[in-house]
């Protein structure tokens, strides 16, 4: 059975300025042990999607529809207690900023132990300490015996992210959701954390959903990529195809704007023109059409009709352009 199956997820936040349509019609499957990246810029809906999986979208007026089937059970229709039993045990989460993600008032050992104790009510204090010590050692914290009784502020950013990872893995989750796990870290530390996540995944066999804005991070550790724009999935493909044969003009634009280390000095960059749309006043039709270099070539279709995800080559793309043009996006000049 598919481990996680998201069907037609819609998330809307009501605000005084109007409805923010953060996620629209997102569907995807996660198989056991695989690594999937959700890539997008700010406002693309990637974090809202991730938070929805554990029902972590809070606010006065949040409307969610669709299905989030975890091994066949719909997270969205569960009772509060049922969701709680899923959180941290079946699906665990790593947040972006390790400096604020740990509770500053308790020792890291206590916090790791707590993550275990929540889902194992019978565990004794001694067991919990043992588990905390083991976890710290596994994620590469030196001198765990001394460190286990220290408070979060006594650790560096990279170390804290290791602790957050240790905490997330303490119950052997089936799915690990990592929301921008390295964005707040230095480059050299980022490399360590990515390596740790890959290593931990190999050990625990968890599936990983990596939320990121950084295509570089995607290339490092994932197998499958979903690109989101303005609340929709615009492309879904294997990591190789995403980079070699992108089948959506937005993905192409992203790749072109990424400053690869190999491009020469003072070479002209090719940015995507304009700015991402407001989620309150989305453009009609395809949300990307006002910034898309190809929209004019299809007459008015892009501004009137929203494209559905369809199979293009071995990828899936939400674009009206004919297949052969989508497959040749990287070759021909815009």
């Amino acid at each position: 059975m598919t481990l996680l199956s998201v069907r037609d997820l819609n998330v809307t936040f009501g605000t005084p300025e109007g409805d923010v349509r953060a996620v629209q019609g997102v569907s995807f499957d996660i198989e056991p042990g695989e690594t999937v990246a959700i890539v997008g810029e700010s406002g693309s809906g990637k974090s809202v999607t991730a938070n929805s999986l554990l029902r972590l979208n809070f606010g006065a007026d949040v409307r969610i529809s669709g299905e989030i089937l975890l091994e066949g059970r719909d997270v969205l229709t569960m009772t509060e207690d049922e969701v709680r039993s899923v959180r941290g045990s079946d699906m665990a989460m790593i947040f972006q900023d390790p400096l604020t993600a740990l509770n500053p008032f308790y020792t890291v050992g206590r916090q790791i132990g707590e993550a275990y104790a929540i889902h194992h009510p019978g565990a004794t204090k001694k067991e919990l300490r043992e588990i905390a010590l083991n976890s710290l050692e596994k994620v590469g914290i030196p001198e765990p015996l001394k460190r286990v009784d220290q408070y979060p502020h006594e650790f560096s950013g990279g170390m804290r992210q290791r602790i957050v990872i240790a905490m997330a893995l303490v119950n052997n989750p089936k799915i690990l959701i990592a929301d921008e796990p390295t964005t707040a870290l230095d480059v050299t530390v980022q490399a360590q954390i990515l390596e740790l996540i890959a290593e931990m995944q190999a050990q625990h066999g968890s599936a990983v959903i990596l939320i990121t804005h950084d295509l570089g991070v995607v290339a490092e550790i994932t197998e499958r990529v979903m690109v989101m724009y303005a609340g929709r999935v615009v492309e879904s493909a294997s990591v190789e195809n995403t980079f070699a044969v992108p089948t959506h003009p937005y993905t192409r634009g992203l790749l072109k704007s990424v400053k690869s280390l190999d491009t020469a000095r003072h070479e002209r960059l090719e940015p995507i023109p304009g700015t991402p749309p407001s989620l309150i006043k989305l453009p009609s039709g395809c949300p990307f059409h006002p910034r898309c270099a190809f929209a004019d070539s299809l007459g008015g279709r892009c501004s009137s009709e929203a494209p559905e995800l369809r199979i293009v080559g071995s990828s899936r793309s939400a674009c009206h352009l004919p297949d052969e043009r989508l497959l040749g996006l990287m070759g021909g000049a815009s």
């Binding site: 480059v187 980022q190 990515l194 570089g216 290339a219 490092e220 190789e240 980079f243 990424v258 690869s260």
Partner: peptide, 9 residues
């Protein structure tokens, strides 16, 4: 070498 490169190959 630590900078992630947007190229899976």
């Amino acid at each position: 070498s630590a900078v992630p490169v947007a190229d899976p190959k």
